[in-house]
Nucleic acid binder design. Structure first.
Lengths: 333, 333
DNA sequence: CTGAAAGCGCTTACAG
DNA sequence: CTGAAAGCGCTTACAG
């Protein structure tokens, strides 16, 4: 590995001149500049990241923290990682992936050792144990997911209560009076995942305002049970004329379940989904609020980078809720 | 951020003693040791990663390189990232995520700057452009996916030709004479994904030995077309008594397609899958060779770490093909 | 426009 | 059993 000293020698200048030639922080004679560039190319020189981090107190690395469940799966990975990685790269940052397999301490480790300049946290729950560590850390962070206490934190999320209102209003306006609601699995609520709670309760209260009757049900926890659970839900409420689905697996399973039951959309049943779909996925064939994780991921990275680079002490941390948008796919009547 | 000097001061010893107390590379008086430990705890001291990397020429970071397709999706992420991350953590390594969005140069960047001690590459294709960079880099790497030229590389993969033989032999032994084969989409072949080619051609040649007739078809490239393409395949070969599926989406779509066509398994049709399923996923309801990515990921990390830490110049790099195993789920007769 | 030198925070031979 | 000092490879004030 060539060092800056090798480059200096080859170009016949001092190390400081090489450094300035590369950083552009001081004027360098054109002729000198080209000699340096030449030497850099010939030697294939790349600055040592550790040395740079030491001198600059800056790593150009963003920590991406995600939750791995007991089965070893990390659902968020699918939807968020690729867009976040691309966004970070475009801004000159690499990504250090941290699964919280060893709890909040993982956060402390990468933060206190100066491995990262800032953090993006996914899967943030209402009383997330990582938040205390985060507040103590002197690195900026952006959360995706709204915790109960947002004091001093930068948070990004879809506005789920607003999404609930959009969905319920849409169905109410079409004249529906009885609506089945499939929420995320019970386990997701138990884990304190905020959007599960927020969407559900906003649905219920908005429905009350309209005088709508809502039948809430938890989706199946396991993939295999998704279809059967939906079947049971349909059997339980033959009077419901509309269905709201807030569970990706149920959305995916729905077409075949409806087909089996010979229920036509929107003839026999109106369907609205609240769906997280990843890049490359196909949106569901239903009218839906599409919560695009790619968009949230990009926003998070941008926000974080501006925090990390801005003259400290500008805009205070805050919560940004992305406005939901209902895409009509003709599955309601 | 506390530095080693702060700790030394607080404990009333020299910086070298703190360093040795922490690394254990030199004997330290018990009383001194506990004073140092105390100071470390009180100050919340964590060594600066950059400084350590500089002094040790070692980062304790593994680079994980994956392919992001044109839609911005990274299919491998889903299956490999969580297990690889866990395996790395257990061995004391963090993970730097690199998407090859800016091509092979991304590899050069993290490798030449000393950001990582070694690399795990996913989605390796037959004539992967990253391989030249890899051979030039002086960091060890382990590939998942078999390239055409494996000289000097450490490679891990499922033994796909063997898988094909297991599958074909199984069907031949049951007396099937006409078999439909659903391969990955045409685009996957075009990208040079080795396992697509290897499984397909091994299926065909093994079938020839048995005198079996195989009807090969590409799966749909897009999610939405998966079902319709399967339908078309069934219509084209009413005489086939067995189906081999080497495409995850087709495997997932199969139950509802068969249901719609009123085809019973294994009564009307025997089904064997070659399926990649991630942690937390449910295996398909078919007799299958389950290519467990978690297992491959763990193996890759272990192999890499032993390369990075071992007294240099032990076992030569080589190819390890994992033996496929057919799990009988009663979908054949 | 350029260079010599100090400093970032570690580790580790060298002395004692 | 412990410390003073050199060195890892950068950046940047200080001089000229």
């Amino acid at each position: 590995m060539a060092t800056i000293a090798d480059v200096a020698r080859a170009a016949g200048v001092s190390r400081s001149t090489v450094s300035y030639a590369l950083s552009g922080k001081r004027a360098v004679a054109p002729e000198t500049l080209s000699r340096v560039r030449r030497a850099v190319r010939d030697l294939g020189y790349t600055p040592h990241a550790g040395a740079q981090a030491l001198a600059l107190a800056r790593t150009e690395v963003i920590g991406l923290v995600l939750h791995v469940d007991h089965t070893g799966a990390a659902p968020a990975v699918t939807r968020y990682v690729a867009p976040i990685s691309s966004a970070a790269r475009r801004l000159g940052y690499d990504l250090l992936l941290v699964t919280d397999i060893d709890g909040p301490s993982a956060l402390r480790r990468i933060t206190a050792s100066g491995r990262v300049d800032g953090l993006v946290l996914l899967d943030v729950t209402q009383d997330d144990l990582r938040l205390p560590v985060l507040r103590a850390a002197e690195r900026p962070a952006v959360l995706i997911g709204l915790p109960r206490d947002v004091g001093g934190l930068d948070v990004l999320d879809l506005d789920f209560p607003a999404a609930a209102e959009v969905v319920v209003d849409h169905l109410a306006a079409l004249g529906h009076r009885r609506v089945t609601l499939v929420t995320p699995p019970r386990e997701v609520f138990a884990r304190g995942v905020g959007h599960a709670w927020r969407f559900r309760s906003a649905c219920l209260s908005r429905a009350r305002e309209w005088g709508l009757r809502v039948y809430p049900h938890f989706a199946a926890a396991r993939q295999v049970d998704t279809g059967p659970v939906l079947d049971a839900v349909f059997r339980a409420h033959p009077d419901a004329t509309a269905l709201v689905v807030h569970d990706d697996r149920s959305v995916a399973a729905l077409p075949s379940v409806l087909h089996r039951r010979a229920m036509r959309v929107p003839g026999d049943l109106s369907v609205v989904a609240l769906h997280f779909w990843g890049a490359g996925g196909t949106p569901p064939p239903y009218t839906a609020v599409d919560a695009a994780p790619a968009e949230l991921g990009r926003l998070a990275v941008r926000r974080l980078v501006s925090r990390m680079t801005a003259a400290s002490g500008d805009e205070p941390a805050g919560v940004t809720l992305v406005r939901p948008q209902l895409t009509d796919r003709a599955s309601t009547a």
